[in-house]
Amino acid sequence: MAVRTLSEFLSSTREKDLSADAFELESPHLLEVRVNGLVWAKAGSMVARKGAVKFTRQGILEQGLGTLLKKMVSGEGLQLMKIEGQGRAYLADAGKQVTLLRLAGESIFVNGNDVLAFETGIESKITMMRRVAGMLSGGLFNMRLSGHGIVAITSHYEPLTLPVSAQGGPVFTDPNATVAWSGTLTPEIVTDMSLGTLVGRGSGETLQLKFAGEGWVVVQPYEEVTFQAKG
């Protein structure tokens, strides 16, 4: 990379104000949130702030007793925080790429570890895949996001969206590489012992997610080990 003068560096890395939305990408890996009230974000994701902004860890019962019980049973590590007040907060998650999605009444499912932030117009609910208990240590929990507003999700490197249709047949993915999928799909855990050690080093090798129906699924070119198969 060519050497830059100090003024060139400051100019090229200065924060942008190109959008009127509350969420704006300052870079592919850094999200700026213009806080005017309340925003939910992944706990520990703040890298900088300015203005009268307060951060509060999510209360133990703020998402309901059912969510609390799921976290207790699964050991789910996802923690949210409230960002409140007037000002700006800058969020990132281990250098992962940030993608902004505007929901207009739709619903999506996101791997709990890949939720970075969402506006208050978005409803969130932790869900667990059926038939998963006993197969994966810690279970396989995700977050259902629906409503109206902007959602920020993360991925390692550039994500890929695969269409799912009855005509094209089911799509199978590595659970540790699966980022999100449409609210119209209900994946199930399947095993394929014939794969041996050829696929999915981090997900127990033979465990996969099967998506069938009509919708889409987003994968990343990286296996993020957030849960493991019981051996």
Rank of each mutant, 00 (worst) to 15 (best):
V3T: 14
R4S: 14
T5E: 03
L6N: 11
S7E: 14
E8K: 09
L10E: 12
L10R: 15
S11N: 10
S11E: 08
S11P: 00
S11C: 06
S12N: 09
T13N: 08
T13Y: 07
E15R: 10
D17A: 15
L18Y: 06
D21K: 14
F23K: 09
F23A: 08
L25A: 05
E26F: 06
E26H: 12
E26T: 03
L30Y: 13
L31F: 03
V33D: 08
V35W: 12
N36A: 15
G37W: 00
G37Q: 01
G37E: 05
V39P: 03
S45D: 01
V47T: 09
A48N: 11
G51T: 02
A52M: 09
V53K: 01
K54H: 07
E62P: 06
E62H: 00
G66Q: 11
G66P: 03
L68W: 05
L68V: 03
L69C: 03
L69K: 10
L69N: 04
M72S: 08
S74L: 07
S74D: 12
Q79W: 05
Q79H: 09
K82F: 00
G85L: 06
Q86C: 03
R88V: 13
R88H: 11
R88M: 12
A89D: 00
Y90S: 09
Y90R: 10
Y90C: 07
D93H: 14
D93C: 04
G95M: 10
V98G: 01
V98T: 09
L103S: 07
E106A: 11
S107L: 01
I108E: 01
F109Q: 08
F109H: 14
N111S: 15
D114R: 15
V115H: 03
V115C: 02
A117G: 01
A117V: 08
G121T: 02
E123H: 13
S124K: 11
K125M: 06
I126Y: 02
M129C: 07
R131L: 14
R131P: 06
A133T: 14
L136I: 14
G138F: 04
L140G: 06
M143I: 13
R144E: 12
G147W: 03
V151N: 13
T154Q: 01
H156F: 10
E158W: 02
E158Q: 14
P159A: 06
S165G: 04
Q167T: 11
Q167S: 14
G169Q: 13
G169Y: 04
P170Q: 13
V171L: 11
V171H: 08
T173F: 05
T173Q: 06
P175H: 12
A177F: 04
T178Y: 00
A180I: 03
A180T: 03
W181M: 08
S182I: 03
S182P: 09
S182E: 07
G183F: 09
G183D: 07
L185S: 05
I189L: 15
V190D: 15
M193W: 10
M193Q: 11
L195Y: 11
G196Q: 01
V199A: 13
G200W: 02
G202N: 14
G204D: 08
T206R: 13
T206Q: 08
L207E: 06
Q208H: 12
L209W: 05
F211W: 07
A212K: 10
A212D: 11
G213W: 02
G213I: 07
G213H: 05
W216G: 05
V218Y: 05
Q220S: 06
P221C: 05
P221T: 10
Y222R: 15
E223F: 07
E224Y: 04
T226H: 13
F227D: 02
Q228H: 11
Q228F: 06
